[in-house]
């Protein structure tokens, strides 16, 4: 971590630069979402746009964490503590997603009708 005056002065320039970078990425993320020429994937919002938006957000988040939150020169322990939170957060999301996407199937095979995993007598295919 920056501890001497000179180092802090140097770091301040970095902070400013990162701030501007974040501004830039913000403009980029709005642009790809609203400007028609920059619309990736199919027309309008789709999965490609979601992935691009999240990638940009992740880059921004990483910059904030690494530079503003000093994770680029932080102690090992901090990583251990924080990553534990992130890992478990990912578990929560992934396992729940798995549970949602693997329902008991009614009737034969996987059809559009029983994709949601909630039993609906009207939609259930008849055997």
């Amino acid at each position: 971590m920056a501890d001497s005056v000179a180092e802090i002065q140097k770091a301040k320039k970095l902070y400013l630069f990162i701030g501007l970078t974040l501004f830039f990425f913000t403009v980029v993320t709005v642009a790809v979402a609203t400007v028609e020429i920059l619309d990736f994937g199919g027309r309008g919002f789709d999965h490609v746009d979601a992935v691009i938006g999240l990638i940009i957000a992740s880059i921004k988040a990483s910059l904030v964490m690494l530079i503003f939150m000093h994770l680029n020169h932080e102690k090992k322990l901090v990583y251990q503590l924080f990553i534990m939170g992130i890992v478990l957060g990912v578990f929560l999301m992934v396992l729940t997603a798995w549970a949602f996407s693997d329902p008991i199937r009614y009737g034969k095979g996987t059809t559009e009708a029983n994709k949601s995993g909630f039993y609906d007598p009207e939609k259930a295919p008849q055997d």
Partner: peptide
């Protein structure tokens, strides 16, 4: 700030 960085795209742009 970091939370907002995710909130902005998922709530406003997606």
């Amino acid at each position: 700030d970091l939370v907002w960085i995710f909130l902005f795209p998922i709530l406003y742009l997606m």
